[in-house]
Amino acid sequence: MNDDPKILAFLCNWCSYAGADLAGTSRIQYPTTLRVLRVPCSARVNPQFILKALQEGADGVLVSGCHPGDCHYLEGNYYARRKFATMLDLLEYVGLEKGRVRFSWVSAAEGGKFAEVVKEVTDGVKQVKDTSQFLKKRDWPSE
């Protein structure tokens, strides 16, 4: 169990980031686990970022974009979806627990859904061990 996990979130500017803002203006409370990075589109998220984030100690990663068909950049979220379907298979194959990496669709009108997603992904991450197994070695000399 990990009681106070940190989750890195890549939110697309047009839908999910706006949805997260709406959760704020609606004062919908959700866990404090999320650290948000705004990206133009979920397609901007290189799958390597996810590995890198886990290496850097993130307990979980959330990537969220517009609903299928709603992408501000026409079809970016389809590319993202394809990439992450493959990515999730790969992560499972290397032994990463399910629930650590999550992909979701949240629109600009779905503040409530955004809060739900954060709760779910936080619960998912809490179920699994901490990420020390992935941590990159810090091998500079100590003072």
């Binding site: 133009p40 589109c41 501000h72 950049y73 590319y79």
Partner: peptide, 9 residues
């Protein structure tokens, strides 16, 4: 338009 799909690919 700056979506960054190319950069991720």
């Amino acid at each position: 338009k700056g979506c960054g799909g190319c950069a991720a690919s």
